[in-house]
Amino acid sequence: MIREGDRLKPLLLSMRWLLNNSDRPVLVTGDTPVTTVSGTGQVSFLPMLLPEQHEVQIPVTPHRLLTMTPFPAVRASSDLSREQAVLVNESIVRGCSAMVLRRPDMAWPSGLVLPSARASLAAPRVTVSARAGSAPTVPVWPAVVEQAFKEALELLSGDPDVAWAGEE
């Protein structure tokens, strides 16, 4: 997943960032708050890695939707349509694992139904085999490029030196 961060950082930074606004709270959020939309308008309803040529949409408040897009934009921001809010909310609800959140003074969006079961991720399937007569293969991972990711991996790979309260 860290290597996916190396791929995503330049990709997201190269996109146009737009902020869509609503005068009333219309967006929910959850434990999977990111929605992807293809260039043809197809909304992804399951957690996934970001495919090429997809927009990324994230509710940042119940009133505001951040859209990162690789496509040309007519203007920097616009009004958040009811239809767009419905699609984003449906995607968040279908992709959630354990929780969906709404602002306490916001009515539950009409027509938004929680799924009866958690979204499932397909188990990865990898098949590796050596060619006849060749030496066995060894998995090789690409190098981590981003320095901040390298530091995070180093910190997470062992016990950090943390002074806990009450310890000298």
Rank of each mutant, 00 (worst) to 15 (best):
T67I: 15
A123N: 14
G111E: 00
S120R: 08
V100T: 02
V100I: 05
P72Q: 09
P70G: 02
P124G: 03
G95Q: 08
A73P: 07
R103N: 07
S110A: 12
S77R: 08
L66C: 05
S81E: 08
D79E: 15
P109T: 01
P62F: 01
S116W: 11
A107P: 07
M106P: 00
S91E: 06
C96E: 02
S116R: 15
F71C: 11
R64Y: 04
S77Q: 10
E90I: 02
D105F: 10
Q84F: 05
S116P: 07
D79K: 14
Q84H: 11
L101R: 07
V86T: 15
C96Q: 12
M68H: 00
A98D: 06
A117M: 08
R103Q: 13
N89R: 09
V113M: 12
S110W: 06
M68L: 15
W108F: 14
L87N: 13
V88T: 05
L65A: 05
L112Q: 09
P72E: 08
G95F: 04
W108R: 01
G95V: 04
V86W: 13
C96W: 05
A76W: 13
R94Q: 02
L80K: 01
L66A: 15
A85I: 03
E83M: 09
A76H: 14
L65Y: 02
D105P: 01
T67C: 15
D79G: 14
A85Y: 00
S110I: 07
R75Y: 13
P72N: 13
A85W: 01
S120D: 04
R94L: 03
A76R: 14
R75A: 15
L66W: 10
E90H: 00
V100S: 05
F71W: 14
G111D: 00
N89P: 12
T67M: 15
L65G: 00
A85M: 04
M99N: 07
M99A: 09
A98F: 06
A122W: 03
S97N: 07
M68N: 04
V100E: 00
P70L: 12
L112T: 08
A117I: 06
M99I: 12
A117D: 08
S78Q: 08
A119N: 09
S91H: 01
L80S: 05
P62I: 01
Q84K: 11
S91P: 00
L66T: 03
S97E: 07
R94Y: 02
P124C: 01
L101F: 09
E90R: 11
V88L: 09
T61H: 07
L80E: 01
R125A: 05
P70E: 10
M106E: 06
T69K: 06
R64F: 04
Q84L: 11
P62G: 03
L112F: 11
S97P: 02
N89M: 03
L114R: 09
A122C: 06
A73R: 09
D105N: 14
P70M: 12
A98K: 06
R102N: 10
P115N: 09
V86I: 15
L87T: 10
P124D: 00
R94T: 02
L114Q: 14
P70W: 13
A107Q: 13
P104W: 10
D105H: 12
P115A: 08
D79V: 14
V88A: 07
P109Q: 04
A73F: 05
E90P: 03
V74P: 12
A123I: 13
V100M: 00
C96P: 03
A76Y: 10
G95I: 05
A123P: 03
L87Q: 15
L114D: 13
T67F: 11
T69Y: 11
I92V: 09
S77V: 04
